[in-house]
Amino acid sequence: MHSSTQAQPTHIEIAKRRSEMRAKALRKRIRNLALQIAVFVVVVGTWEALAATKTIDPFFFSQPSAILRHIRDWVVDGTSQGPLYIHFVVTFEETIISFILGVVLGVVAGYALGMSEILSVIFAPYIQMLNALPRVVLAPIFILWFGLGMPSKIALGVTLTFFIVFFNAFQGVREVDRNLVNNALLLGANKRQLARHVIIPSALSWILSSLHTSFGFALVAAVVGEFVGATEGLGFLISEAQGAFDTTGVFAGMVILSLTALVADWLVTRLERRFIHWRVSAR
């Protein structure tokens, strides 16, 4: 009886402490969120107030409320260049296609050069040279070669994403733990099994971490390409707004673009979690 009378209060105590700690953690999260929102409110609010009182010229700096209205108009009535979703879909399609192509080519090339001493010796200087080139300057050439449509944007996107993924895949293959390779060999792995059980899984974490950056670059390439010459897409929309001295239109395009980038980043993070679940402990 003695032990049960003692056990009872500790049980309650544990429950109490747990709820206390939970409440503390929740308060911390609420505080962080509140601070984040506060920063947004202060920045946007100042901007709005300065523009409303004409302290800064709304013609050059626009105004948050005007940008919101502009986006609403685009969504409801469509843009001067046709419905908004067409432009959005075009840019998104260019981004996704060039991202996928760039990743596939980058992984294949990175794996091949990482595995083969001779290939990497031959191609290393050329790859360094191409990588040193600011590849955005290729945009006009691609437009000359492939026209104003999607292929020129995809070509630019592929050149941008390829190198990032390539270097990561190459490094990933090279950085495989020597002991793990030796261990697999002693356990009886042949070349194919070595790739499947050791090299690819090990390189995968490098490749996946490059996907965030390379997706961003694919989006940049699509927008820059549209900027230089296109008939549709978000970049084209922004460039049209700029041509008409429509600052609000430029900002509206930027807001939509950054929202797209956020969504894409979230998707890539999900993908990453799916593939390298072994790295974060489940508990």
Binding site: N179, L180, N182, N183, A184, L186, G188, H197, P201, W278
Partner: peptide, 16 residues
């Protein structure tokens, strides 16, 4: 072909 090795650092494959 008849040896196995326990290394100083990890032998285990972290993805398995």
């Amino acid at each position: 072909p008849v040896a196995a090795c326990v290394f100083q650092t990890d032998n285990t494959f972290p993805w398995k």
